[in-house]
């Protein structure tokens, strides 16, 4: 038996010469099961999230009372944000299909910061949600599936801009780099890339000795709640 195992192991190593065909074969036969598991996973985790929330209801009540006081103070800020959102919505409220050639794809699985989708797309094609939120970029294409690197991957980089402040930088994973420390970036600022929404600024660290700000961005999507994505083919 040990000899057979060694032969299988060597055979597996030889498959590295045909990685795309090998992976494509397994992705093709697995995609119906993966679709089922992904759907069930979403249902299960949203259900367990609800259960968890019920159990911490009392704590949440107290928190909410405190938050209520804070919210009154933040009301003014929110009104400003509402105006900002209105502008943003107007800017983004154009039918997606009028602008781009889109393909609808379903998410099959996720491993670390990579997604597997059920459509073959050209490498470097961007993926967005129906709300024009940028999710990632195709890094590997198979016969019927594609591998997508999510924007939160530390090696992923996109040109990014802070809306309404005309500040440009480079988004590396969740870090927004190359923004000079003299720029006025605040928590809650909206980050976009080209015409797509990326997320909002959640942390800004300014160090006198460093020429650039350290900015952390929270993506506008929750990958666990996504089922479908649009591939931009243009």
């Amino acid at each position: 038996m040990k000899k057979i195992l060694i032969i299988i192991f060597i055979f597996f190593l030889f498959l590295n010469f045909l990685p795309e065909k090998t992976r494509s074969f397994f992705y093709n036969i697995s995609s119906p099961i993966q679709t089922f598991f992904w759907q069930q996973g979403q249902d299960f985790f949203s259900f367990s999230e609800t259960i968890f929330k019920i159990s911490s209801f009392k704590e949440r009540m107290e928190e909410l009372q405190k938050e209520n006081r804070k919210l009154k103070l933040e009301n003014i800020f929110l009104q400003e944000l509402e105006k900002e959102n209105k502008v943003l919505k107007e800017a983004l409220d154009i039918k997606l299909n009028d602008q781009f050639r889109l393909d609808l794809a379903r998410i099959l699985s996720r491993k670390n910061n990579y997604l597997l989708i059920n459509k073959s797309a050209e490498e470097d094609s961007l993926l967005i949600t129906e709300d024009k939120v940028l999710v990632g970029k195709v890094v590997e294409s198979f016969s019927n599936q594609s591998k997508v690197k999510i924007i939160t991957h530390s090696n992923s980089s996109f040109n990014a801009e802070i809306l309404e402040k005309n500040i440009s930088g480079l988004l590396n994973g969740t870090k927004l780099d190359l923004i000079p420390s003299d720029k006025n970036v605040e928590k809650g600022d909206i980050v976009t890339s080209k015409e797509f929404l990326i997320g909002k600024v959640v942390k800004v660290i300014k160090k006198d000795v460093e020429p650039f700000l350290t900015i952390e961005v929270e993506p506008a999507f929750n990958i666990r709640k996504l089922n479908y994505l649009f591939i931009i083919n243009d």
């Binding site: 099961i33 993966q34 089922f36 598991f37 992904w38 996973g41 299960f44 699985s109 996720r110």
Partner: peptide, 10 residues
């Protein structure tokens, strides 16, 4: 492995 990658994920 399919359960791992599509249901449990991370």
């Amino acid at each position: 492995v399919l359960f791992q990658t599509s249901f449990l994920v991370d």
